[in-house]
Structures are given as C-alpha cells and as structure tokens.
Amino acid sequence: MRRIAVVGAGGAGKTVLANQLGARLGIPVTHLDALRYDTGWNLIAEDEFAARQRAAVAADRWITDGNSLATLPIRAAAAAAVIVVDPPPLVCLWGILQRRWRYRGGQHADGVFDRITWFFLRYVILYRRRHLPRTLACIAQHGPHATVVHLTSRRQAENFVAQLSGQEDGR
C-alpha cells in the first residue's frame, strides 16, 4: 500500500492510525485539517480545499487522514486502499474527550484542529447511521479499484498496524 485514505467519524482514531501507518510504512501523512484551514485556523474556500487535496494525492506515496465527504471522490479515486475507522459512537466520544484533555483544544502538533460543537457531537453520534452509508457508497463509486479495510474497534486498528509490520501485538 502506497496510497492510503483513512476516513471515519471524529474521535474514531483516524489521526493516530494514519500516523502509525506513516511511521511503519515510511509514507508521509497529510491531515485534511491542515489543508482545510488557513494559518489562523479559518476555513478556506471549498475549491481551494479540493485543489490542495488533488496536489497531495498526485504524489506516488501518501496517507490522508480526514473525513470530508464532499472531497472524498478525490482521495478515493487516487487511493490504493481506503481504511474506514468505525468504532461505536461512544468510543468516538471518549476519543474526543481524551483528545480535549490531552491537548486542551485548539491546534494539535499532529495536524488536527480540535473544535467541539454541538453540531460536531451530533455528527459523531449519528455517523454510523447517516454518514457511513454515504461514505461507503462514495468509495464504491469513485474507488472501486481500492482495497477497503473496515475497522470497527481500536483493537482491530492495532492488529492491522501490527500485521503490516509482520509482528503480533501479543493480545
């Protein structure tokens, strides 16, 4: 795998997984939050966001981390693999709380911008029911050539990373 798109709900563990894969495989990671916002963490125009993604996926080797459904066709069409990180909503909410506690909000060193709103929390809670089916349909339409890996727990994600390196995680 040389071109990997990691998608999923907020707090699902996309960034952690993308960073682990990047380190394990020696592939640069692009966080969509870093492309989505300007240097003051203001949203940029959608066409500029799409252009930044096109530039990122034009490389031979890349991992993207983020879940913009509007621009997922760009990533899915270029990806060799799409990893769907899909733990239960309560696990995602716990991940959001842990991230908030660890970083105290704002910009994180790993490229994520932590902005918790009621809209965001509702999105996370309803992700599996409302957004995941559209995400999977988009991947099927724009990335039929891509291998899709659907991880429904943190343990599956850990095992997936361990298998890539040919190591067992001992659990």
Rank of each mutant, 00 (worst) to 15 (best):
A5T: 12
V7L: 04
V7A: 07
G8M: 01
A9I: 12
G13F: 03
V16H: 01
L17G: 03
L17K: 03
A18N: 12
A18E: 14
G22A: 11
A23Q: 14
R24H: 09
L25N: 03
G26K: 12
G26Y: 01
G26F: 00
I27V: 14
I27N: 02
P28K: 10
H31E: 06
H31S: 14
H31Y: 03
D33C: 05
L35W: 04
Y37N: 03
G40D: 15
N42I: 01
L43S: 15
L43A: 15
I44G: 05
I44T: 01
E46M: 14
D47H: 14
E48S: 07
E48Y: 00
A50R: 12
A51L: 02
R52Y: 13
R52S: 08
Q53K: 07
R54N: 05
A56G: 05
V57I: 13
V57N: 05
A59C: 08
R61P: 01
W62N: 08
W62K: 02
T64M: 04
D65N: 07
D65T: 00
S68L: 15
L69C: 01
L69H: 08
A70P: 01
L72S: 05
L72N: 06
P73I: 13
I74L: 04
R75Q: 07
R75T: 10
A76P: 14
A78L: 07
A81C: 13
I83K: 04
V84R: 14
P88L: 09
L93Q: 07
W94I: 02
G95W: 00
L97N: 10
R100T: 09
R100P: 00
Y103R: 13
Y103V: 00
R104H: 07
G105T: 02
G105A: 05
G106M: 04
V112D: 06
F113I: 01
R115K: 12
R115A: 06
I116E: 08
W118Y: 03
R122A: 10
R122W: 03
R122V: 01
Y123S: 05
V124G: 06
V124M: 04
H131C: 07
R134N: 11
R134C: 11
L136M: 13
C138R: 09
I139N: 02
Q141H: 12
H142R: 14
H142N: 08
P144S: 14
P144Y: 14
T147V: 05
T147Y: 10
T147G: 06
H150S: 11
S153D: 10
R154I: 06
E158Y: 04
E158M: 11
N159W: 02
F160W: 07
S165N: 05
S165R: 09
S165Y: 06
Q167V: 08
Q167I: 08
E168D: 15
R171M: 08
